[in-house]
Amino acid sequence: MMETLFPNVKWHIMWQATYDTIYMTVVSTAVTFVLGLLIGILLFLTSPNQIWANKIVHFLTGSLVNIFRSIPFIILIILLIPFTKFLLGTIRGVNAALPALIVGSAPFYARLVLIAFREVDKGVIEAARSMGANTFTIIWKVLIPESKPALISGITVTAVALVGYTAMAGIIGAGGLGNLAFLEGFQRSREDVTLMATILILIIVFVIQWIGDTITAKTDKR
């Protein structure tokens, strides 16, 4: 049946593309999580009335985040070509997509982290301070655990967006399902390839959303 519905799909190529998409999504999500969390912490702690309240650092970090968040991803990829070349020596292949994916999504996640931290009860932070907690303890044992559901649902949203970004990164030759749909499906007018690639991307998105929702629900004890 699959043969008749998808006559032009070469399955080993399709699976390789699926693997590439998953690889790019997982690696960039992982790095985005760490980087976004760090930037988010910096944004939060330097905001007014916080422990490291600092107008200049807060303004600079906030501006950088806003700039990178505002550049359309397809343009960001092109702008980052020299940087990627310098970093990896090539602009082809799945790894070449990673810098653009991370630079594009880490600032977005940093904003979500900032929002999550702002939701943490100020009284709890004050209580920790009254017990003699230092800044590291407050970040590690109060801010992060107390905002865990928001941090996880935030990274879920980011990961879903990243799946979309990988498809765009495919245009510049990064591989993955987006690349396959573009080259094999669109340029050669093989609609069945495009359709299959779309189905697989949807499945990846649904699985990510399901994992994210499950963990969020499990960590929320409020």
């Binding site: 009860d121 009284g123 709890v124 009254s130 017990m131 107390e146 004890k221």
Partner: peptide, 20 residues
């Protein structure tokens, strides 16, 4: 100061417990 605070505890109107 942090060391001193360990000997001066505080309780709060809204309890300020960690829900997690």
């Amino acid at each position: 100061l942090r060391k001193a605070r360990q000997k001066i505890s505080m309780i709060f109107q809204h309890f300020n417990l960690l829900w997690s």
